[in-house]
Design a protein around this nucleic acid. Structure first.
Lengths: 335, 335
DNA sequence: AAATATGCTGGAATCGTTTCCATGAACGGC
DNA sequence: GCCGTTCATGGAAACGATTCCAGCATATTT
């Protein structure tokens, strides 16, 4: 298709044109020691020939690709999009490319993508893990620098640093707010893999002396359809529920839609709090009270961690914040 | 940090263990000709040693990286997130990694990212271009396979295939709908780089015999702040405007927010149509009438195009669709 | 049966870089 | 003035794959 006549200029060309050896060129360009005269000569020649070192040669020699592999469940979800944005923003300042993969929260797909990453000899990976230790063990043994973002792997992999939002605190504040409004029958609409949030939820209820009812914790898969089904099912099966906490913005969206469809008014009939603040939360009718998540920060800090050379903290916890809008009201029995 | 004791198994190890030459192993693994016996032997040995060919060696020899470079203005914008999702989804089925860069609609950043891509010897790029021919010319001359998605470069680069939504049709339908409701003072809230949509807008007005007023076309930069400022400014400066068409979902969000802030009711005071259907459009109050964009399809088709070997169509145009909800009403003078 | 065609095979070159190592020059201390 | 140290330098060996090419065995043709 494309002729692409002229060969790319290589380090050899520069060495020849500058009258020095390739080793010297390489040293000058990567900051090694060289005499001032030589340095200048090489730099000038490189600029004149418009030489850009090829990452291919370097990577092969160094036996690893630069750059970061990023694995998220769903790039379409505003939360993960913002997380990715944070990673990309940090990586850009280091000039490192980022390879993105979408796992769909499916351990099998995640495993496939990990395979691709290993094939590319990626040695830095940031992931929102779906699979357990079994999936991640080979990666770690291959010497890849892994950072978990937003959640840990189910099975404990203590050596992997993680950057997390303070779910426990966010949930506690939200539950306190709801119980303060008189609510006792509070449901949690969770996505699979949010065990940590669920634990925080039941913990907070217990701490406040509210009995925990297992059937009020409902799980959905990652898709919008599944989220909607779970939300509608919850509202229909439990007419006595007066407040709902949703584990993410997709679930929140589903809850609003389902409530509207079932003619359950928010906040008159049920109060609603959503995990993760998104731009549309304010536009929604009613504007949604949310537990804001520092998604962009999580991404940025993860990237810093994975790019930093030295030893790294085992865990970074970033604050969540309850943003009160208009989707919660005092408890009123629904029937 | 990590010992990573054992060396990665290479093609040489496999060759030795199977008692054949490296050339034969390579041929078997990449589908070349080999006798049945040899093939089986090699395959078995490779599996036994858990051999995975390194992309590094292959890339160097082939003188280009596999995989796709994807450049979008803002991954946080639902439209581009869905576009990226389409690309990722197609790329996954080919097993090709995707490297994502965020340009912020800034030609300079775009140029930097292109530099990174070239350094990586990426030979396939999908981009929502911000810069003009000057930025893209070096890439094309380097023999990179480029596909433009969602919009073309300002300067005409006729050799680059593009996958686009049918903006002209979408705008025409929307404008016809609005004029049908009696609107004459229709504003367009555009982002820089949406010249095509603006042209379609003025074209549609002219075709319907509505005079075009240049000051009713307002431009904003990519950020949310800039979008809000532009929206608020428009509503304040032109109280006679009775309908607004926004060039994207960020601008639509800004318009809803600004209208609410300025106590301009939708659709009573102004009718609003937004480019791009997003999940929250239905949740908004009022639910927004939108010109739905096949973002995911655009991404998917772009990836198909950039991955396909043979000759490719110069342009793929995907349909837009007007989705009528509740943000438009009959014209009423605002004062 | 000789000549030619066909097909499998492995050695070696190659891709573009980094880095080890040997060389030689300059330099300072005794 | 000699020796040890330091420093800049370039040749050459990796890195791990693909692929050209020559060699050889077997099948086909004359």
């Amino acid at each position: 298709m494309n002729g692409s006549g002229q060969r790319r200029t290589t380090i050899k060309d520069v060495a020849e044109a500058a009258g020095v050896g390739v080793a010297t060129v390489s040293r000058v360009l990567s900051g090694g020691s060289a005499s001032a005269g030589t340095r200048e000569k090489v730099l000038a020649t490189a600029a004149r020939l418009d030489y850009h070192p090829s990452a291919l040669g370097r990577n092969l020699r160094r036996r690893h690709t630069g750059g970061i592999g990023l694995l998220v469940p769903d790039i379409t979800d505003s939360f993960y999009a913002r997380l990715a944005d944070g990673v990309l923003s940090c990586a850009r300042s280091y000039g490192e490319p980022v390879t993105v993969g979408v796992t769909g929260d499916d351990p099998e797909r995640e495993s496939e993508l990990i395979g691709t990453l290993i094939e590319q000899s990626m040695d830095r990976v940031i992931a929102v893990p779906s699979g357990d230790g079994e999936v991640w063990d080979p990666v770690l043994r291959a010497g890849v620098n892994v950072v978990f973002a937003s959640r840990r792997s189910d099975l404990d992999l203590p050596d992997v640093p993680a950057v997390l939002a303070d779910d426990r605190d966010g949930v506690r504040t939200a539950v306190e707010y709801l119980t303060g409004l008189g609510h006792r029958k509070i449901a949690f609409l969770a996505r699979r893999g949010q065990s940590q949030r669920v634990a925080a939820f039941t913990g907070a209820l217990t701490a406040l002396g509210v009995p925990v009812e297992d059937e009020l914790v409902v799980h959905a898969r990652a898709s919008r359809d599944s989220a909607y089904a779970a939300a509608a099912g919850l509202l229909q099966r439990h007419p006595d529920v007066t407040a709902v906490l949703t584990g993410g913005n997709i679930l929140g969206e589903a809850a609003v839609l389902a409530a509207r469809e079932l003619d359950v008014r928010v906040p008159r009939d049920v109060s609603l709090i959503m995990f993760d603040d998104v731009p549309w939360a304010e536009l929604c009718s009613p504007p949604l009270t949310v537990i804001a998540q520092p998604a962009q920060d999580i991404g940025y800090r993860s990237a810093e961690l994975v790019l930093r050379q030295g030893r790294r903290p085992r865990e970074v916890v970033l604050p969540s914040e309850l943003v009160v809008r208009a989707s919660c009201g005092p408890r009123r029995p629904r029937r």
